[in-house]
């Protein structure tokens, strides 16, 4: 399973390296979202600094939708989905590989967004360990849930519009937990954030487990 996961993750990351979609489209989009939030909330640095946690994770969520859409668009072109089903790869390995590739892309985008939030919104980091733990747990949860719903929507004709509708409510706990945890890490009391980080870990583990078990069934065509 892990060999298959590594194979899929390597392939997806190579596709992204060659196509440069993440660096040339998604990352600029993420920065643009931060700028628009800044403009919308007026250059009142006080409000921006206080809202920076929520704005950061909303931007991450938007980027995650793009990354997930992209991860399954490359599989739906030219019979890729059938080819994957015929490949003999373990479906759990495919799930973990795709989730890992999405998570790595999101992690890179989060670094860009974090720098943007510090520079543009004047956010102050007071709890770096909590910040990093939150990013790791939330990213794993976003990637796992996104991969699970991504394959669900990929078999449908209206997948581009359906995926956000399906996925955003599911990801609400990640948005809430990560925002609360970030608030504690950005100028708050770090100990207040760890329970929220625990929630994110539980979310990620749940979706990783469900995805590992259910991905094979979801890849099949409805009979």
């Amino acid at each position: 399973m892990l060999r298959d996961a590594a194979l899929i993750a390597g392939k997806d990351l190579r596709v992204e390296l060659r196509s440069q979609v993440t660096t040339q489209q998604v990352a600029p989009f993420a920065v643009l979202v931060l700028i628009l939030f800044g403009v919308a909330l007026d250059p009142d640095r006080g409000i921006l600094a206080r809202a920076s946690s929520g704005l950061f994770w909303v931007a991450v969520l938007f980027c995650a939708l793009l990354a997930i859409q992209r991860a399954f668009t490359i599989e739906s072109a030219d019979g890729g989905r059938d080819a994957l089903r015929l490949s003999g790869l373990d479906p759990a390995g495919i799930f973990l590989g795709k989730a890992a590739a999405i998570a790595l892309q999101l992690a890179a985008l989060e670094v860009v967004l974090a720098v943007g939030v510090v520079i543009m919104y004047g956010a102050e980091v007071t709890g770096a360990p909590l910040l990093i733990a939150t990013c790791v747990a939330a990213t794993a949860g976003l990637a796992a849930a996104g991969t699970l719903y991504g394959v669900l929507a990929a078999g449908l004709r209206v997948r581009e519009t359906l995926l956000p509708i399906l996925l955003l409510p599911v990801l609400a706990p990640v948005l809430i937990g990560a925002t609360k945890s970030f608030e504690a890490a950005l100028g708050g009391v770090a100990s207040d954030g760890w329970p929220w980080c625990g929630l994110l870990v539980a979310f990620a583990l749940t979706y990783l487990a469900v995805g590992t078990l259910a991905f094979g069934t979801l890849m099949e065509e409805p009979s």
Partner: peptide, 10 residues
């Protein structure tokens, strides 16, 4: 088959 299953970006 009619589809090749190839990745255009690779």
């Amino acid at each position: 088959g009619h589809a090749t299953g190839l990745y255009d970006e690779l």
